[in-house]
Design a protein around this nucleic acid. Structure first.
Lengths: 159, 159
DNA sequence: ATGTATAAGTTTCATTGAAAAACTGGTTGC
DNA sequence: GCAACCAGTTTTTCAATGAAACTTATACAT
């Protein structure tokens, strides 16, 4: 069974660098948040975020290139361009919310008056947590690394 | 009730910029990952990540400054310095795993041989999801913004 | 048809941040 | 005492960021 410590050679094939490749640059996450909030057009992103136009252009192109957003000209007004999230982009929502909840919890006085709720019952959403296969909430010290081919074996001893 | 679209003036008081202030720079998340994997010392971070020493020094100082890690000299060997995660830092684990799972799911061929499992039963952990207060899994289109003072009211109509 | 406004970018250039490599300074072990 | 080690700093070079002006294509009004 794997130790908690991830071997060096496998660090390269971990999903985190892949994710950071796409979302790790400055502004990427803020652009994503705007997109989740219903922002579609270049000028909207520009004015809402206060980002420089060249950087915005660059980031949007990169997000499109990586399949997080799609770019298409508007039919009704062909000056405008419509940027919207792909399923791949939508799948970033848990990561974004987890980050955001952390920022709200520890970031000092950012307790907004606005709270994200489930539209069905109007109650605030739950904190994002880590869960085992059977839905139990688990934490850092419950985790271990295992090779794919020895999956299913119980924890031997260690620690 | 709030629209899905978050008002502009509240963007500033959202937790995401606060989180990115701490974790948004290049290397911050990779340093964090190493810390979760049991890396403690400067030289370890340096060699495992391949990060330049000056940048590493800068990032570690920033993480300490923001309360994500603590820095202390080792008692047994006073050349060494011990960096380890605070509770605030440990609370970044859901965000980091969500990001990592996204990277694994969409990042192409990063399917590592190593899989993160629950140490108790040896089964892979569940994907990180968004949940309502009653633990139902919900998605982007189930979300809405609400002012704190009108919490509890059910969704009126809209959409 | 002409003129003006808008949208979505590019270009240019000054400033800032990152990377690589050499250097410093306190510990330790021999 | 001396060589090796650890955790940084300094220095220099190169890439990224940011602000502002410029460009192109479309729309709208006269």
């Amino acid at each position: 069974m794997g130790k908690l410590r991830e071997p060096l050679k496998d660090l390269a094939t971990c999903g985190l660098p892949a994710a950071l490749e796409v979302m790790g640059e400055r502004w990427s996450f803020l652009i994503l948040r705007a997109a989740f909030n219903g922002v579609y057009h270049f000028e909207e992103f520009s004015s809402q975020l206060g980002i420089a136009r060249n950087i915005l252009s660059n980031r949007l192109a990169k997000l499109v290139e990586h399949g997080v957003m799609v770019r298409q000209r508007c039919e009704d007004d062909r000056r405008k361009v419509h940027y919207c999230l792909t399923p791949k982009g939508e799948n970033l929502l848990p990561a974004m919310l987890a980050l955001r909840q952390w920022g709200e919890k520890f970031g000092g006085n950012v307790s907004s008056e606005l709270i994200l709720v489930d539209a069905r019952d109007g109650k605030p959403i739950a904190p994002i947590t880590i869960r085992a296969a059977d839905d139990r909430e688990i934490g850092w010290h419950d985790l271990a690394w295992m090779h794919r081919d020895e999956l299913g074996k119980k924890k031997p001893d260690c620690c």
